[in-house]
């Protein structure tokens, strides 16, 4: 539950914030996000001017360049009622790092206001619980991988699981799986490719050992990294963003 909210939210005008990586490589997550929000009665908008929030540059140490993209983001989204994104790490960028990036003047004020309106999808959806009955069904066993920025930076720990437990037929498997990084780390996976794969393989093995049919999570970047590793170790396990399970 997000501070300041209680109970079910009234229908809102929601601006979708679709990170470039989701947009380019996992558009199904974006579609699912839109569908869920619309079925819950929200008015969903997508501003085609949006591109990248600047996280890739910021994490690589290019702060000035990242600031330019942060400024764009603030300009595009500052009027929104609510901004919802199916990515923990990009939301964390906006919420935690935009204030360190050197925005000045009006942009800085706009950014401060905007921060409280940006939600990771599960944060936003958990304000809509309970879902109408028969919202969707997914008759499979699923293990949840908490991606680091969602889990640690945003502190979103139980929301995706609360949402998934509303889905008919789903079996959530945990087997006391320890919380561990998938090894993606953005530019890290390019700079230290082998190491990044080693970490991913360890994670993939742990996930596979749960015996679940599907791995789910809230960041397509991490899920993509895990998927690649599952294939490398020859696992039949499948990977899916939780939004697609919710959308049915």
């Amino acid at each position: 539950m997000v501070a300041g909210w209680s109970g079910r939210v009234d229908p809102l005008k929601v601006q979708l914030f679709i990170p470039c990586l989701v947009d380019q490589a996992a558009p199904a997550t974006a579609h699912a996000t839109q569908q869920i929000l619309e079925r819950l009665g929200h008015e969903v908008h997508f501003d085609r001017r949006q591109t990248c929030c600047g996280q890739a540059l910021f994490n690589s140490g290019f702060r000035l360049e990242a600031r330019i993209l942060a400024e764009r983001f603030v300009q595009i989204f500052s009027e929104a009622e609510a901004i919802v994104s199916p990515s923990g790490s990009c939301v964390s960028m906006v919420v935690h790092h935009y204030s360190e990036i050197g925005l000045v003047g009006n942009l800085r004020d706009d950014c401060e206001r905007l921060k409280s309106k940006v939600f990771e999808l599960s944060q936003f959806l958990s304000m809509n619980l309970p879902f109408p009955s028969g919202f969707s069904s997914f008759p499979h066993s699923v293990v949840y991988h908490p991606s680091c920025h969602l889990n640690r930076d945003l502190g979103v720990k139980t929301e995706p699981l609360d949402l998934l437990s509303q889905i008919d037929g789903i079996r959530l498997v945990s087997n006391d799986l320890p919380v561990e990084c998938c090894g993606f780390g953005g530019a890290f996976s390019a700079k230290y490719g082998k190491l990044s794969q080693r970490i991913a393989d360890r994670r993939a093995e742990a996930l596979e050992a749960t015996g679940a049919e599907f791995v789910t999570g809230g960041d397509d970047s991490c899920l993509g990294h895990i998927r690649q590793s599952l294939r490398r170790i020859g696992s039949p396990m499948r990977v899916i963003h939780y939004s697609r399970i919710l959308a049915g």
Binding site: R152, D153, G183, G185, A187, F188, K191, S196, I199
Partner: peptide
């Protein structure tokens, strides 16, 4: 500092 995934387990 690049030799890190920024997973945040250290801070935790």
């Amino acid at each position: 500092p690049d030799l890190s995934t920024l997973c945040g387990a250290c801070k935790d």
